[in-house]
Design a binder for these strands. Structure first.
Lengths: 246, 246
DNA sequence: TGTACATCAGTGAACGCGCGTTCACTGATGTAC
DNA sequence: TGTACATCAGTGAACGCGCGTTCACTGATGTAC
């Protein structure tokens, strides 16, 4: 009976989850981003060799952890974005970036694992992690396009871009000469992404003066609103966004 | 004779330098940010134990490497900045940020060591690394103040800052109520710093779409000029800056 | 100028440790007739 | 319903490895008289 097979499979998957969560917990507790198979086994009260029933190698666990971390941020951001009313796109963006920041602060080691320096001696298999990685940026940058559609975003013309940045903004899938969306939109979206990563990196890795780190929430909020404003997002739409506690 | 003592000391210091540069080379070659004492010894053709004549422990070598890396970026930025004519401050800033980026791209592992996620199980002694760390930000952010003095930078009033970010911008040494420079200046400088770190992080750690990574120089230049412009730096001063190849 | 002595550089063996992985195994769980 | 068999979960010992660090040592370099 396949119901029984499923019970077996469910048990197996439950243990896989246990292993991953032990690894995650160990990473936040010990702070080691180079994760330790024997320590995971110890945590679970198993023999180290038992883990090989569930993962073919240590690196496979790392890959799973990385994918999970990307998924976790992605999910947090998507959820925050979804809570904003559909006509309040600027609010949604602000909710999304705050969700990103909150997740990063609550999971600094997982954040470091995916957005910090790469783990030595390990190269993530791109096909496994890329889709999860893109969730966050897709969610946030997609909203910027929606801002433009809703007339909340007044872009400069593509002509305002220096000639030498154009190749940086033409993507493989693009119909050459007839890009799917204004290049200025992409430029602005990428710069928004840079500010966002920069603000979170600087805070999580503590590359800012102490008072700024202590009042990080307010300054982050201010920085992201400024970023939206200089992109050309309607100021009233920005002012309407997210008062809830960050 | 103390001349002889000096010769001894010089030999000693020369070996210290050899060790550090072997460690540095090993880091860039093997890519391991968790550096390996035995590998360094191998590289130098010495017994591992010999290194203890020069450093008390592995961590001490790491600390030296971190300090050196900060000093290296700091020096590169300072040198670039110094080459610009004193009345062309915006040019100097642009030269400085390009020097920063160039160094980061040429030394990605050293960059990761100081600006990426912290090395697991190691906490840098702040008093040793902090002065070196501040060289870069001091050099660049100091220039922004000079921009203001030279009338190249029109700041918004402090009143434009949301009330809740003010505590983030008041620093320990400040005379309360009578800050040494406009808080708006600090806000703007910190945001510039965030954009700079974000742009370099995103490029070095590859959190941008491929075309942007391939044409990173042009886009970085554009991003930093935009950042200066939205800060209120005079557009003509920006346009005058740095054409030399990045 | 020569000799006795102290200091330093570097060796080589050894320490204990923890790691990732393998292997042959034992029980328990589920399957087929 | 009972029994023979296959599959899976997990054990425990062992593998080879490389790590950081210690220790007693040997030569070479410099010092003092």
């Amino acid at each position: 009976m396949s119901g029984v097979v499923n019970r077996q499979q469910r048990r197996h998957e439950a243990t896989v989850e246990e292993i991953k969560s032990a690894a995650r917990e160990l990473m936040t507790r010990e702070g080691s981003s180079s994760l330790n198979l024997r320590a995971i086994a110890r945590e679970l009260g198993m023999a180290p060799s038992a883990l090989y029933r569930y993962f073919p190698s240590r690196d496979a666990i790392l890959t799973a952890l990385i994918t999970e971390a990307y998924d976790a941020v992605g999910e947090a951001v998507e959820a925050a974005v979804a809570q904003a009313p559909p006509d309040r796109t600027a609010t949604a963006v602000l909710a999304g970036v705050h969700a990103f920041r909150r997740w990063a602060r609550e999971h600094p080691h997982e954040y470091g694992l995916i957005y910090g320096s790469p783990v030595p001696g390990y190269e993530a298999p791109v096909e496994a992690t890329k889709p999860a990685e893109l969730r966050t940026s897709d969610a946030l940058l997609g909203l910027l396009s929606r801002c433009a559609e809703q007339g909340l975003l007044t872009l400069p013309g593509d002509a305002s871009l220096p000639a030498d940045v154009l190749p940086a903004l033409c993507w493989p899938g693009d119909d050459p000469g007839r890009p799917p969306l204004p290049l200025a939109m992409r430029a602005v979206a990428m710069q928004f992404w840079i500010v966002l990563l920069g603000a979170i990196d600087a805070e999580v890795f503590r590359h800012l003066p102490a008072p700024l780190l202590e009042h990080g929430g307010a300054f982050f909020d201010h920085t992201m609103r400024r970023a939206l404003a200089v992109m050309g997002v309607d100021q009233r739409a920005i002012d309407a966004g997210v008062s809830p506690a960050w």
